[in-house]
């Protein structure tokens, strides 16, 4: 029995999320008194994988087959299954992001494992095995028992944080035994976002709603995001209007995020929007309507004109950073 952490990579790089997963896997294994290992699929250099030792991962299985870059759901699930067999893993941990959501269910069937997605924190009890997750889009939490011997948890990003625990990391070369025919996803083109903080990775998010009035008015909001090193987001009407791309929509039918700081400019705070952001550690709302429901969810608020507040914020942040 052991815990296996799936460490994905982005063009060979790891992110804070990778180290958060490593931290979670190591802490979970300690709680269960089981060994922990990690598996990496795709080309990642050894020095990068060795960084996982800082967060308590003593061994990383690395399969450097470049075909994993196609993110073929079925092939990655097969490879992860081979890794669980090799490490006698009974619990697998991965991210609750696009790839984690895509491959964890396939792996769950192969392992006959109870799967809980978007888990927050370590298990509440290990015997029985009970974990906590958000349900009804942040309106409630559920305590869920996994009854099967094998288990898969996908971790809600930015909810656990980093836990340092220095160990030596051994890299083991690993061949999951996949053939070219196992990869059935044909990627015609990729459009990767560069030079911007990704919404899912952002510790600070600057978001705009209908109160921004038009697509052309995002300049100051983007400037604030830029100097804060923040990601940009928007409410549903804004993405529906095409003012901003769908990928920026946070809320019930868009993304659910949990940054340390969330700025809501001109967002009224419909219940569907709040569901996507209420796990943020601190929420700042700026809205001209004092009755807007966003103020019930916010920690700090300004009743006022977003176009008067934004320049003041930008100046104040510049002063702070200076």
């Amino acid at each position: 029995m052991s815990v296996l952490v799936y460490i994905e990579n982005w063009d060979g790089k790891l992110k804070k999320l990778s180290y958060e997963l490593a931290s979670y896997g190591a802490q979970l294994a300690e709680k269960l008194q089981l060994p922990v290992k990690a598996v990496s699929l795709g080309k990642v250099d050894e020095a990068t994988l060795q960084n996982l030792g800082k967060y308590g991962i003593p061994e990383v299985l690395s399969d450097t087959n470049e075909a994993y870059n196609t993110l073929d759901n079925s092939a990655i699930a097969k490879a992860l299954f081979a890794a669980t067999e090799k490490t006698a893993a009974t619990i697998v941990v991965m991210a609750n992001n696009n790839l984690g959501k895509a491959v964890s269910p396939r792996l769950a069937v192969k392992m006959k494992a109870g799967l809980v997605s978007a888990v927050q924190g370590l298990p509440i009890s290990t015997e029985p095995f009970v974990v906590k997750k958000m349900v009804f889009t942040s309106k409630a939490f559920a305590h869920i028992t996994i009854k099967s011997a094998n288990k898969i948890l996908t971790l809600a990003p930015n909810t656990f944080g980093l836990v340092e625990k220095n160990v030596e990391t051994t890299l083991t070369s690993f061949d999951a035994g996949l053939a070219a025919s196992d990869f059935e996803t044909t990627v015609v083109s990729s459009n990767k976002v560069t030079g911007k903080v990704l919404l899912q990775d952002a510790e600070i998010v600057v978001s705009g709603g209908r109160g921004m009035k038009a697509a052309d008015n995002w300049g100051q909001l983007e400037e604030l995001a830029e100097i804060l090193g923040a990601g940009t987001a928007c409410s549903r009407p804004v993405s529906d209007e095409g003012w901003r791309p769908h990928a920026e929509h946070v809320g019930q039918t868009g993304k659910i995020i949990a940054p340390n700081l969330y700025f809501a400019f001109g967002i009224s705070g419909a219940i569907q929007h709040l569901g996507g952001v209420s796990s943020s550690k601190v929420i700042v709302a700026v809205n001209k309507d004092p009755e807007a429901p966003i103020f019930e969810a916010a920690d700090y608020g300004i009743v006022g004109d977003v176009f008067k507040v934004l320049p003041q914020f930008i100046e104040a942040v510049k002063e702070l950073k200076a």
């Binding site: 809980v116 939490f141 305590h143 019930e296 969810a297 916010a298 920690d299 300004i302 009743v303 006022g304």
Partner: peptide, 23 residues
């Protein structure tokens, strides 16, 4: 068969009042 089961639910803790700042 089902491999997981709901044990129980809870509502999130009430949020403290929003601190307001003048424009």
């Amino acid at each position: 068969e089902a491999l997981t089961a709901f044990d129980h639910f809870e509502l999130p803790p009430a949020k403290a009042a929003c601190k307001m700042v003048e424009e």
